[in-house]
Each structure stands twice: as C-alpha cells, then as structure tokens.
C-alpha cells in the first residue's frame, strides 16, 4: 500500500521542489536525486515508487520549470493531492499525464507515513490508519485524455482543434484563484467519475 508523505505548508515553491542549481539536466532519474532537497533533504531516501504526496495549497508556485514534475515523478511519487496547485505546475502535470488532485481537506486527514488507498473511480482517498476518507475534485476530461494519449505532444499531434475545444477543463477544480476549489456541479464531472 502506498505511503503518504505530508508537506503541510502552503506555497511550497519550485525552488524548494528542485533548486535552480540542478537545472543543468533534464534527465528525470538525475533530477529525482534532488527532489524537495531545500525543504526536506531526507525525502528522497524515504520515498518509494508509487508513494503519495499530500501538500498545502498553491503547491508548485514560482518558476515554470517542468523539472518540478519530473523530479517528483522520477523519485517515485505517483500522485500529489493538495487543496490547489499553482497554475504552471498544474498544467505541467496535465501535459505529463501526472496526477495532481485537488482536495480541500486532505492535509488535515493525513500524518506523514500513513498508508492510503486511492480510489480514482470514487474520487476519494482513504487513510488506512484512521479509516477516514476525503474526496478530491474529479480530474478534468481533458487531463484524462492527455494522459491516455501519452502526454500533450502526442495529444496535440493526434487530435484536431475541434476535438481539443470539445474537451472539458471548465471544472471548478481548476479555478484555484482564491485558494479554495469551488462547488461541484454535475456537468463538470468527468465521464466515469462519480462523487463519493
């Protein structure tokens, strides 16, 4: 069962996720060695493939460096949950088919080292220690389709403009403007996704 790594502070920025001094490479396995170094030097020693990160709001603010997504994925992180994400980090996650899930209550529900079960279909994550479940916003259909295509470049190459503009990214979940995801509405639910 995947382990949860909690980084509770808001505004964890790209300089903490992957400092600029390591930007002379774009190789994921190299970047992985330095993931979160300026926040927690020991994280890379603890994280195992498939693990889950839970973070405070506005995760990934600052630089546009996609290295922030690559280093975390390279280190083994399979999914990040936060109340919301900074804009460029969020689109970088989508473009890489990397799961960044928005969940208002997730930070309070976990302690570092807890084990968790993620249910994408039900849109919830369950803490195995406490039995508590919290929901997350449905992944926008566009993000799912980019993921299925293998990434944004593949999607762009293989889809028409009309297909793209027919996608949904209107989910309130991406309106992280004021630090709080908005209310759910049925038309924003991705097909195959149900609210818990």
């Amino acid at each position: 069962m995947p382990r949860v790594h909690v980084f509770a502070r808001d505004h964890i920025n790209t300089d903490e996720i992957i400092p600029a001094r390591y930007l002379t490479t774009d190789i994921e396995s190299e970047l992985a060695k330095f993931a979160m170094e300026d926040y927690d030097k020991d994280f890379v020693n603890r994280v195992k493939p498939g693990d889950i990160m839970v973070t405070g709001a506005d995760f990934g603010c600052g630089s546009s460096r996609e290295h922030a997504v690559w280093c975390l994925r390279g280190a083994g992180v399979s999914v990040i949950l936060a109340p919301n994400f900074a804009r460029i980090f969020y689109r970088n996650a989508i473009n890489n088919g990397f799961l960044a899930l928005e969940s208002e209550d997730v930070v309070a529900a976990f302690e570092d080292g807890d084990e968790a079960e993620l249910d994408m279909e039900a849109g919830k994550i369950t803490n195995q220690r406490t039995g508590q479940s919290v929901t997350f916003q449905p992944v926008p259909q566009f993000a799912l389709d980019v993921k299925a295509a293998g990434g944004w470049l593949e999607y762009m190459r293989d889809h028409s403009k009309a297909e793209l503009e027919d996608e949904t990214l209107s989910a309130e979940s991406t309106e992280a403007g004021h630090g709080h995801p908005g209310h759910d509405s049925d038309e924003n639910l991705a097909p195959g996704t149900q609210r818990a």
């Binding site: 774009d26 546009s64 996609e66 460029i88 970088n92 473009n95 890489n96 944004w152 470049l153 762009m156």
Partner: peptide, 10 residues
C-alpha cells in the same frame, strides 16, 4: 505567459 518545456515544445 510562462509555460513548461512540454508546452514550449508544442
């Protein structure tokens, strides 16, 4: 606006 390397590639 600023984007990541994948968007830049596109």
């Amino acid at each position: 606006t600023g984007v990541g390397s994948t968007d830049l590639a596109g």
